[in-house]
Design a binder for these strands. Structure first.
Length: 654
RNA sequence: GCCACCGUAGCUCAGUGGUAGAGCGGCUGAUUUGUAAUCAGCGGGUCGGGGGUUCAAAUCCCUCCGGUGGCUCCA
């Protein structure tokens, strides 16, 4: 009997199993059952719990080996990297205090309090990084130490660290684990890689301030961000992607391609659309406008300001007074607000006359410009601004129509992002337990959340649920798109709202002759045109598809002798509705081509003596090079094919 | 708003105490050119604003404004 308990049985997910002595470690199991993974293993999942490879296993177990390739493995790897960075920091800045150092989606950070009088800046990072490499070279094991709560507290009283003590306060009475590598010891629940030798390719990325516990009333700590890889080539690839992202920065491309202008002379976060950017924006608007008209939307226009009382009725004003431009006060009782959202205006349209169930769903759409006083530190190019235009619409429908309307909105949103070749992830954003954050009746909330989830299930969508991500008046469906570099952006949103119909006392007369309350769907596929275009610039790296390109073609005569032909061609293409310019300067063709390529113009149309004589045009396409000659008719057919949303996939050619 | 860093010509940047520089762009002229930058000449900046230290400030200090990376926030 005793002997039985000395052995444990270990099963793998691919159906193999073996016996081990009780108290065996992940190391032994990996070496026996997964010899090919042994050098790369960072941890082991034991009956659903993640263990260090050095931790004894005491019972029968189903196991899974984790490497850097697994999401959980990456977290272990980066968490360990944070500890390695901490060890390096402690070596370079004796007396530095550590707060928290977790892994994040891409890498890790550690929040630290530098010793009195010391400021760590970006210039110090290479030194820290070099120290990390040096420590990794030593290849020492990470050890897991179990201690009592009292011992842990004693340790941090001696090595005075208020942050760790505060963390321990929340763990009062529980057994505590420490991890040690080399001379560095840290309070940590784990898990960690077996040894520092795996962490040879770190890169410290940036440094920033961060409040302790994320609370702006607390002390600001120094946060150092980094990343680390098992192989040099993975680090190289990561750094290459970062450089590519920098190269595509929409603020840089926006200036170079003359799309928009941000100037303090107008105000922070208040973009001006230049002619090229205006083409982009209007083209996108017209695209969506057409799709909406096909789907039964009606377009409206509302003023940029509204009576403050309107926003009190909606409940937005007291909730969000901080993030609005202050009201304009005309007289004691007459105050106006720059509109922070379009909703209340649209509700007035609904409420402007009695409504019958026969009118529902009523779908009101507006490219509505709104103003929000975002904190100065929050502003970022077109991504986050103080004045922006939503592709907004409100759908007023009977409760029994709600699910079909949500489905139609999801279909539209998915259609839109397919056009841009952006994959979409869906998040159902529901409320959490913090009742103070939300308005309206709990029963209505639960109903809305249930219906949203039912629709998502009926459509067979893959989704995640984000608790606490809801708007104050209702749950949402958020669309998170991935761009050409794989970065994720939250764009479109669909929100179900039972609260505003109550607040505005919206009604319709049903078939039974009685008044009923409609439900409102708020939705915006792009979210905001500014933000979407900012993302689109980076997605395409400024190489816009033909249908979106601000200038679609430039005509390049080789000598003055082709000027007349060049002007005729330009005009013919313009008459056909294309955005075409002629470059008549007395420059060499090479220069004209170089400049047009820098402007990322999709088509360069070269006219020399040969072309004029044969009534053709030599075509060069951005990203594809010389395409040979075409007649104007052939060119027009080609243009017509390309001038359709979604006709081209995103390409990343320079 | 908070922390760190930054702000010199339209753009990219050099100039760390001795009264402002380059390349590109711009303008003018020459050149008439065949698939990524022809040559020459000419303009252009109260060095982000204000205050201070100094015989002397782009340079050192203070302050305000703006930007970048984060934090908080994001209807």
């Amino acid at each position: 009997m005793v002997r039985e308990r000395e052995r444990i049985r270990v099963r793998t997910s691919d159906g193999r199993s073996a016996e081990f002595p009780r108290g065996t470690t992940g190391h032994s199991i990996v070496e026996v059952l997964f010899p090919e993974k042994a050098p790369h293993a960072v941890g082991i999942e034991v009956n659903g719990t993640i263990y260090d490879l050095c931790r004894p296993i005491l019972e029968d177990a189903s196991v899974r080996v984790l490497t850097f390739e697994d999401p959980e493995g990456k977290q272990i790897f980066w968490h360990s990297s944070a500890h390695l960075m901490a060890e390096a920091l402690e070596a370079l800045y004796p007396g530095i205090k550590f707060a928290i150092g977790p892994p994040i989606e891409q890498g890790f950070y550690y929040d630290v309090e530098p010793p009195e009088g010391v400021v760590i800046t970006a210039e110090d990072l290479p030194r820290v990084e070099a120290k990390m490499r040096e420590l990794a070279e030593r290849d020492v094991p990470f050890e897991r130490l179990e201690v009592s709560w009292e011992e842990a507290v004693r340790y941090y009283r001696e090595h005075w660290n208020p942050y760790k003590l505060e963390i321990l306060e929340e763990l009062r009475g529980q057994p505590i684990t420490f991890y040690r590598q080399g001379n560095f010891v840290d309070l940590c629940k784990g898990t960690h890689v077996p040894s520092t030798g795996m962490l040879r390719y770190p890169k410290l990325l940036n440094i920033a301030g961060a409040y302790w516990r994320g609370d702006s009333r607390n002390r600001m700590l120094t946060r150092i961000y980094g990343i680390c890889f098992p192989e040099q080539k993975q680090l190289d690839e990561y750094l290459r992607l970062r450089e590519e992202a920098e190269r595509r920065d929409h603020r840089k491309l926006g200036r170079e391609l003359e799309l928009f202008l941000l100037t303090p002379a107008v105000g922070p976060g208040l973009p001006i659309w230049l002619p090229n950017g205006t083409v982009l924006r209007r083209t996108l608007e017209n695209f969506l406008r057409r799709e909406q008209l096909k789907r039964g939307y009606q377009e409206v226009i509302t003023p940029h300001i509204g009576n403050l009382e309107l926003y009190k009725t909606s409940g937005h004003y007291p909730y969000y007074a901080d993030s609005q431009f202050p009201p304009m006060v005309l007289e004691e009782q007459e105050r106006y607000l720059l509109k922070p959202m379009n909703c209340p205006h649209h509700h007035q349209i609904y409420a402007s006359k009695p409504r019958s169930y026969r009118e529902l769903p009523l779908r009101l759409a507006e490219f509505g410009t709104v103003y929000r006083y975002e904190q100065s530190g929050e502003l970022n190019g077109l991504i986050r601004v103080r004045g922006f235009t939503q592709d907004d619409a409100h759908i007023y429908c009977a409760p029994e129509q709600l699910k079909d309307e949500i489905k139609a909105v999801i279909e539209l949103t998915q259609y839109v992002f397919r056009i841009f070749g952006m994959p979409v992830d869906i998040r159902l954003s529901f409320r959490d337990d913090n009742a103070a954050k939300y308005g309206g009746d709990l029963a209505l909330w639960e109903r809305a959340q249930r219906e949203i989830q039912e629709v998502a299930d009926e459509l067979g969508l893959r989704y995640t649920i984000g608790l606490g991500e809801a708007a104050f008046y209702g749950p949402k469906i958020d669309f998170i798109v991935r761009d050409a570099l794989g970065r994720r952006w939250q764009l479109g949103t669909v929100q179900v709202d039972y609260v505003m119909p109550e607040r505005f006392r919206l009604e319709y007369i049903g078939p039974d002759g009685q008044a009923h309350r409609p439900v409102i769907i708020h939705r915006a596929p792009f979210g905001s045109l500014e933000r979407f275009i900012g993302i689109l610039i980076e997605h395409y790296a400024g190489n816009f598809p033909f249908w979106l390109a601000p200038v679609q073609a430039v005509v390049l005569p080789i000598t003055d002798a082709q000027h007349v032909a060049a002007l005729q061609l330009t005009e013919a293409l313009q008459q056909a509705g294309y955005r075409v310019q002629a470059d008549l300067r007395s420059e060499r063709l090479q220069r004209k081509i170089a400049e047009a390529e820098h402007r990322k113009i999709p088509f360069l149309l070269v006219l020399g003596r040969r072309e004029v004589e044969t009534s053709t045009v030599a075509v060069r396409r951005h990203g594809f090079g010389d395409q040979g000659s075409r007649t104007v008719e052939e060119l027009l057919r080609w243009f017509a094919e390309l001038n359709v949303p979604g006709a081209e996939r995103a390409h990343s050619n320079a």
